[in-house]
């Protein structure tokens, strides 16, 4: 595949089209051209009457704690950090409905601050009457839970951030 600026633009346009046509809210694609050379595209759009936010409002970019005495807020507000880009993000392997507990009324699989082991179930994403247990990809600590119980999630949507 030859890589040109024009073909990248065409690719992004095609994705935007796909988003509209299929009534999606977000789409993320990684195109590998060669080793260490790839295009990462994420297109999203605001929906009227959006069905439950798939991503909880992200607090402002994770600022290093070591920052000096707070500078006056002169700088323009930076865009919130994209949780999907967080190296500790666990993303949804399927489009569906996310549940934080095994069944209504039961206690949640995890809470913020919990230590989890590799393979431990973090939550469930239901699709086609299949309850998909989402395993933790590694041992770690639950830093954030980005979705609410019963939220609609897209493929690739960040669900949990581990550290």
């Amino acid at each position: 595949m030859t890589k040109t600026h024009d073909s990248d633009v065409a690719f992004i346009k095609a994705l935007a089209e796909l988003l509209r046509e299929n009534d999606l809210t977000e789409l993320q694609v990684k195109r590998d051209y060669a080793e260490d050379d790839s295009l990462n595209v994420r297109v999203s759009r605001q929906m009227m009457a959006a069905p439950v936010a798939t991503v909880a409002a992200a607090p402002a970019a994770a600022a290093p704690a070591a920052s000096a005495p707070a500078a006056p807020a002169a700088a323009p507000v930076s865009a919130p950090a994209d949780p999907a880009q967080d190296p500790g993000a666990v993303t949804s392997p399927i489009v569906g409905t996310a549940y934080l507990s095994p069944e209504p009324g039961a206690s949640a699989f995890i809470s913020v601050g919990d230590t989890v082991s590799e393979g431990q179930t973090l939550l469930i994403v239901e699709a086609m009457k299949t309850m998909n247990q989402i395993p933790s990809p590694k041992a770690g600590k639950v830093k954030r839970i980005l979705i609410e119980d019963g939220a609609a999630v897209e493929f690739g949507a960040p669900l949990v951030i581990l550290e």
Binding site: N22, I94, V95, G96, T97, E126, A127, M128, K129
Partner: peptide
């Protein structure tokens, strides 16, 4: 192709994966 239910609604096409 993903198994989702495709509904044609007044507001356009809608894909449903759980429900």
């Amino acid at each position: 192709a993903e198994g989702q239910l495709v509904l044609r609604t007044a507001a356009g096409q809608r894909m449903i994966s759980a429900g």
